[in-house]
């Protein structure tokens, strides 16, 4: 990691509340964080601790109530809908717990959905190759296992060569062996393409995968720890 490069994200005093008055739910209660280029950051915490809210704001799917979140020169907290759409289109790759593949498109076509509108994408075949699915690319989602579907989702997320890859519980619906393959794919993307990667989990063991671990509770960052070394997924247990 090169600390001299400017951070990808710069977050200051980030707050997010849903609803108003007494019924308001304060999902984020003042977050300050900077995320470096190429970093693999694990967000850890129980349900409702605010990690998903943060990921959504970083992904341009939501806006903070107050505070600032900068992506390079772009202030995401005040960007228009159209600007956020463009931001997602060119810079962000998403991976969700439920894979959200388009059932009517084959694996390759799901990836092409993104490469058709991206600026300098990699070929769909190459993206699928990175997740070891080159052979299954003409299959429809219904013909793929859960792990395979998630890897297609990862290939789709990274095919546009995004600046950041945001993964929200990518192994949440998978068994351990399959989950490990998915994590290996994410790690490989991070290492080979240098994509800044944020990974949400509530599994403490998975946290050993990242460069840093951010622990959430009650809408606040409790600790930020730097792992001495990344642990390869094959050595993780959960």
């Amino acid at each position: 990691m090169t600390a001299s490069r400017p951070p990808v994200f710069e977050l200051r005093g980030l707050r997010k509340a849903y609803g108003e008055g007494a019924a308001a739910v304060r999902a984020l209660r003042g977050i300050d964080l900077h995320i470096d280029p190429g970093e693999l950051l694990v967000l850890l915490g129980p349900s409702g601790s605010g990690k998903s809210t943060l990921l959504n704001i970083l992904g341009g799917l939501d806006r903070p109530t107050t505070g600032s979140v900068r992506f390079g020169e772009l202030e995401l907290s005040t960007a228009t809908d159209a600007a956020l759409t463009d931001y997602r289109r060119h810079h962000v790759g998403f991976v969700f717990q439920f894979y959200n593949l388009i059932a009517s498109l084959t694996a390759r076509e799901n990836v092409e959905l993104v490469t058709e509108v991206a600026d300098a994408p990699m070929p769909a075949e190459e993206a699928l190759g990175l997740v070891d699915l080159a052979e299954r690319m003409t299959h429809f989602p219904a013909q793929l296992s859960g792990g395979e579907q998630q890897r297609v989702a990862i290939a789709r997320a990274i095919a546009k060569r995004p600046s950041v890859l945001l993964c929200d519980e990518p192994t949440g619906a998978l068994d351990v062996a399959t989950g490990i393959r998915v994590l290996e794919s994410i790690l490989r993307i991070n290492e080979q393409l240098g994509t800044t990667t944020l990974l949400i989990t509530h599994n403490a063991d998975i946290a050993r995968l990242g460069d840093r671990v951010v622990r959430f509770a009650d809408g606040l960052i409790r600790t930020v720890e730097r792992n001495p070394a990344r642990v390869p997924p094959s050595q993780l247990h959960w």
Binding site: G59, L61, A82, T85, D86, Y87, R88, R89, H90, V92, F94, N100, L101, I102, A103, S104, L113, V114, V117, R156
Partner: peptide, 14 residues
């Protein structure tokens, strides 16, 4: 709904 939301998240305009 899910496909449309996916498209929007992937950066497709409305």
């Amino acid at each position: 709904e899910r496909d449309l939301a996916t498209l929007r998240v992937l950066g497709f305009r409305r």
